[in-house]
């Protein structure tokens, strides 16, 4: 805004139609990728990959659809504050949760399981 000449009509950036369509195509491709990746068993990585893909999609939407790439620095600061505070909360909360062995409050009263007669349970649900 600061560069705007007061004698000229301040114009917004008009993005070419193609850029929107390309981003839309990318978003659909990433959606299909999410579902495709889901069918592989990668343990914890499944969740990590899903979150990374979601973050990429979010960045695309924010930068192009929400016009953040033409936004001022102030807009960038405001747009990132929510995520920064969220990151602080995640960091402190999970540094606590992940560093100790938490008991399962719902499982406290459970007694050991006996296998079904003449059947081998494929999984022994240990408490």
């Amino acid at each position: 805004m600061s560069e705007t000449n007061e004698h000229s009509v301040p114009h917004e950036h008009v993005d070419p139609l193609k850029s929107y369509l390309v981003v839309f195509g990318l978003l659909l491709a990433l959606l299909l990728l999410t579902v495709w990746v889901y069918h592989f068993d990668m343990g914890v990585l499944n969740t990590v990959v899903a979150i990374i893909i979601a973050c990429v999609k979010t960045s695309l939407v924010m930068l192009v659809f929400m016009h953040l790439r033409h936004g001022t620095k102030l807009t960038w600061v405001i747009a990132s504050t929510g995520f920064i505070w969220l990151c602080i909360m995640i960091t402190f909360l999970f540094s606590d949760y992940l560093s100790r062995d938490l008991p399962d409050p719902l499982k406290a009263s459970v007694i050991p399981v006996m296998p079904v007669a003449a059947e081998t349970p494929h999984q022994a649900p240990a408490p």
Binding site: T34, V35, T58
Partner: peptide, 9 residues
């Protein structure tokens, strides 16, 4: 975009 993979998948 976040809800779909985190709840359904």
């Amino acid at each position: 975009i976040f809800l779909f993979p985190l709840l359904y998948l």
